[in-house]
Amino acid sequence: MPKNEKDLILKVTDLKMHFPIRKGLLAKTVGHVKAVDGVSFEIERGKTFGLVGESGCGKTTVGKCVLRIYNPTGGEIVYNGKDIANYSASEMSPIRRDIQMIFQDPYSSLDPRQSLKSILKEAIVCDMKPHGATEIEKRISELMISVGLDPIMMDRFPHELSGGQRQRLGIARALACNPDLIICDEPVSALDVSIQAQVINLLKNLQKQLGLSYLFIAHDLAVVRNIADNIAVMYLGHIVETMDSDEIYAHSIHPYTKALLSAVPITDYYEEQKRQRLPLEGEVPSPIHAPSGCPFHPRCPYATDKCKEKMPDLTERMPNHFVACHNV
């Protein structure tokens, strides 16, 4: 199917987010942190797009730009056919109901002094329409049941909940305004393994029932692969590879993706003994002094002179599989 026939809910083109570094009495701008530097991707309606990368690669910044928590330095964010990158605050506010966010640490994103009921009520009434008290109560129960919380707990406070329950509450709050797109920023990384699986399954089921689209941001490749339809791997503000998530384990091409994969041990004992390791030396460079050309070249075993000078473009190497590397 050609590109333009896809039902896209979000299309991000050449998104840039540069944070100025200010110094001195007059707060002169002395440089920029290029947190996101030319990122493009698209999300189909009803699908999950996974964004993976190590800390500091800019994946959370992308999520925050889409919600316009940050005002991007450049690029387009087309949501349902409209470019929202330059919308004013009042133009954004109806859209913020359609795009919701789930955070990593549900404890710091929930008000400790509000009961569950009041947290959810706030999200329900934010659409400025009149709501009856019984209607709100009914909706709160519905929401709690849909995320697997018992409505009896309505009058409790966040500290009385376990980590998994708190994350469920975070999801319920995101669902309260009937959103189309949910940005999930590391939603399961603070949870125990057995609870993590429960929350992943819940997110998957909600997607089936409500036709939600997700932008799923996480550092755990296995989690992202499990939930996402497409995966983009980020490194220092750039997407280096995007592909169907079935491809990632066996058919990834970019040297960084391969190194990242080989760093993650798998739980199959026999398979693990056979796996080839591609150790990655050194650390991620600072985005203030990002290397010229391909950002990965100082750590890349295949780097050539060309890599030092020119940033490679994302090119389609296989159907639906884009790689940014000169030496494929």
């Binding site: 998994g164 699986a197 692969r225």
Partner: peptide, 25 residues
């Protein structure tokens, strides 16, 4: 067994749901 089943895997079939352990620790 439950713990092993609830770990998302990099290498196995992707389509199936994770088998989570019910309830809380």
């Amino acid at each position: 067994m439950g713990l092993l089943n609830s770990v998302p895997r990099l290498d196995s079939e992707r389509s199936q749901d994770l088998v989570a352990i019910d309830g809380q620790p």
